[in-house]
Every structure is written in C-alpha cells, then in structure tokens.
Design a protein around this nucleic acid. Structure first.
Length: 274
DNA sequence: CGTAGACCCTGCGCGC
DNA sequence: TGCGCGCAGGGTCTAC
C-alpha cells in the first residue's frame, strides 16, 4: 500500500481528527511486527498524552505528543491505519490500537506484519537508527537533479535501484520508481554512471510531479475516510507504467514491458525510455 | 564499497 | 470448486 504519497495522504486525512485528542490507552494485541513492539515503552510514551501534530518523514507517520514524545508508525507492505468508533468490532490483524479520549480508536491493521510502531523522543528522532541514514525528502526544498547527480557520483548500478535507495532520496518505492522513470524517459536499467546533468534534472522533476499527482489523486478519493471505515481510493491512482505489462504505452502505443530488478518488478516502455 | 538474493509474513488471483 | 504457485506497494541482513 504505502509509498510516500499514501503516507502523506494518510497524514493529511488523520491530522484534523487527531490533533487535540488524547491517547488514553494503548492496546497491543500482537507485538510481532517487523520489530517487536515495545509495549511498555509505547504505553509510557503515549498513554495520557495529547496529540499535538502529525508529521511525515520518509514513509513513517510521526504522531507528535505532548511532553516531547512521538509515536512513529511504518505501514510496511500491508499496513493500514484507520480511525474507528471505539466500539467498532475488531478487524482481522488489528495488532495495535490507540484508544482516544473522544471515544474513538486509531487502529493498525497489518496482515503481513512488516510494519513498525516505535515510541521515540521527539528531539531524538533524527538520531534514531531508523531515521539516521535517511536522505533528502523529495517534496521539500533541497531536492534537485543536482542532488541526485552528486549522490550518484562514483556509484554504479541501475538507476531504478538508486531511486529506491532511501539513503539518497526517501519515499520512492517500487511503484513510483517505475512511474518516475517512465515520465522522465529514462530506462530503468541504465547505470547511474551514464546519466548526464540534464537527465538528472528531468528525473528529479518527474519524481516530484509523480508524487504530487499521486497525493492529489489520493486526496480526492479519501472523502469517506473520516467515517472510520478506512475505505480509500489508493488503487484509483492512475498509473502510466506500473502493472501495465502488455498494455499500450500511453505515449507511443507500444507494449509496456516488465522486468525484474533485485527481485522487484519494473515496468517500462522500451521505446520511450532510453 | 556496492549489489544481488534471501528473508520476514499473510492473502489473493491465476492457471490447472 | 479446489489447490498449488507466484506474486505483492516495505526494509534489513548476509554473501559475494
């Protein structure tokens, strides 16, 4: 489910409902996520605290709480974080729930359990091992083709893996790496050593455009989010390349191809991407 | 140092 | 209809 746009859409939709509310109780039904949930630490860091802000870093949703604490949630591959009425029946795989003073509960459902729930000190987030290595935010000032070119200097390997390397730029996952390279007209297998400055600019611009468009489309389909059922339009985001093997390229009409890089599917147009 | 592959886990869709 | 297989948007670790 979640790459940067999905987490950002989630942040924006939850923010008005959560800020000002208070976490009164933390329920950990199954701590066996990608890293074990530290239940006692999470309770200490979250229970009885007001929500003061919702932020995002990379694919982490950051729930800032009073007293300088933050709960960081990573959705992994299959995680969904939704607001529900307090008495709403348990969902399958509802591993963690934050019960709120308003009577609702913020619940994490994650069948594959690749997600994370971390209790952090707000001031120490950037020093935490989950965050310390992270690169630039693609939707913030400071991201540019020049930054990519500099990070690529002296490196080799396919540009698709490079774009998905969170040490370089965060938030670009398997879907939007394909989408960005399609938009930029750059072949996913091309070595980063063979990309000139102008192409890096084009790649950076495409990453920004693709992420922004996905956020805009996600936002328009989330009107029913507040009802707490967690339905959303993530799948309605229009994709030009991803999962379109054999279908016509939207630019030239030729068939979109699929290949496997580092065990992940890549979709591209061999005629439009060089 | 960089990269490819295995692995973590469950669910779903497809072909037979 | 049932079943086995491959594949799935995340990241990390190990072996080369």
């Amino acid at each position: 489910m979640p790459e940067l746009p999905e987490v950002e859409v989630l942040r924006r939709s939850l923010e008005p409902h959560l800020v000002g509310d208070r976490i009164v109780r933390v329920e950990v039904r199954n701590p066996a996520l990608r890293e074990p949930v530290e239940t006692a630490r999470l309770r200490r860091g979250a229970a009885g605290r007001d929500v003061v802000a919702l932020r995002r870093r990379s694919k982490y949703l950051l729930i800032d709480l009073a007293g300088g604490r933050t709960v960081a949630v990573h959705l992994g591959m299959s995680g969904r974080l939704t607001l529900a009425a307090g008495e709403a029946p348990l969902e399958p795989h509802e591993h963690v729930a934050f019960h709120l003073r308003s009577g609702r509960r913020l619940r994490l459902r994650d069948p594959r359990r690749f997600g994370l729930v971390l209790a952090l000190e707000t001031a120490a987030i950037e020093a935490d091992p989950h965050f310390a290595h992270l690169g630039v935010e693609p939707l913030e000032a400071g991201f540019s083709g020049e930054v990519l070119a500099r990070a690529a200097a002296g490196r080799r390997g396919p540009v698709k893996a490079f774009l998905m390397d969170a040490r370089v730029v965060v938030g670009v996952g398997n879907i939007y790496a394909s989408e960005s390279l399609f938009r930029a007209g750059v072949h996913p297998v091309r070595s980063v050593a063979r990309i000139a400055a102008a192409r890096w600019d084009r790649i950076a611009d495409s990453v920004v455009a693709v992420l922004r468009q996905a956020i805009a489309q996600g936002g328009t389909t989330l009107n029913d989010f507040a009802d707490g059922e967690g339905r959303s339009g993530y799948f309605q985001v229009s994709l030009a390349a991803y999962d379109r093997e054999g279908e016509p390229c939207l630019a030239c009409g030729g068939p979109v191809r699929r290949l496997v890089q580092a065990g992940r599917s890549t979709y591209y147009c061999p005629r439009c991407q060089r």
